[in-house]
């Protein structure tokens, strides 16, 4: 497989440079652009596998560029923006971006997200093949095979303990539904729940560290504060 080429677009050249260094360290090829128009030109002239795109840029802003790219190509787009409001994130994702990272970002987290998006993009064909079995429950980068009771993130298996697997299975099978700690405890441990919040939370946190890119800002396994826990359907 050829080395993936990643396009970094930001009007701040230092940021582009820093990201490029990190990406090159990870072994990727990097293309650079400093506004939306240059980004569109780069996509036409080169074979790009992923785009890191700023929003506030001269000439053509990131959201418009995303829309233009989505008209023709299915390349994964990660938006990098200083706009941290939920509404900004929702807008970016609805425009066709695959992920939204707020500035200032942790370089390691960004690398992890790049890796995740690339893996999904490159192995898309395999994933589709598996889906035909109807035994796989899928949300975003997570897939749980109910037959083998294994969880994969971006196609690679996640090693879970027996209890964790049970919790994941419960939440994956009822994706989107909120489970109070007591219910999780009773269904996973099979015992009467009494003061179990801590116990459940410990397991939830451990699972998060295994499946989430940034466990402190989980995308999938979420706490619904004051109610319970759920796995988000993405």
């Amino acid at each position: 497989m050829e080395t993936p080429c990643i396009l970094v677009v930001d009007d701040d050249r230092e940021i582009v440079k820093a990201i490029s260094i990190n990406l090159k360290n990870e072994g990727y090829r990097v293309a650079e652009a400093y506004d939306g128009m240059q980004a569109l030109e780069a996509i036409c002239s080169q074979d790009i596998h992923l785009i890191l795109l700023d929003i506030m840029m001269p000439r053509l802003d990131g959201l418009s560029a995303t829309m233009k790219i989505r008209q023709e190509k299915n390349i994964p787009i990660i938006i990098l923006s200083a706009k941290s409001e939920d509404s900004d994130k929702i807008l970016g994702l609805s425009m066709g971006a695959d992920d939204y990272v707020t500035k200032p970002f942790n370089p390691m987290e960004l690398m992890a997200r790049v890796k995740s998006q690339l893996r999904r993009y490159m192995t898309l064909g395999d994933v589709n093949m598996k889906d035909k079995n109807n035994t796989v429950i899928r949300t975003g980068r997570l897939a749980f095979d109910t037959e083998t009771r294994t969880l994969t993130a971006d196609g690679s298996p996640v090693r879970l303990t027996a209890t964790e697997t049970k919790i994941v299975e419960l939440l994956m099978k009822n994706m989107g539904r909120i489970f109070p700690a007591e219910e999780i405890y009773e269904r996973v441990w099979g015992e009467v729940a009494y003061s179990v919040e801590n116990t459940v939370m410990v397991h939830i946190r451990r699972i998060r560290e295994k499946i989430e890119i940034n466990p402190r800002e989980p995308e999938y396994l979420k706490v619904v504060w004051g109610i319970g826990y759920k796995i988000e359907k993405i």
Partner: peptide, 8 residues
């Protein structure tokens, strides 16, 4: 962002 990236 630049500061954090370069410190990193």
């Amino acid at each position: 962002t630049s500061i954090i990236s370069y410190v990193d």
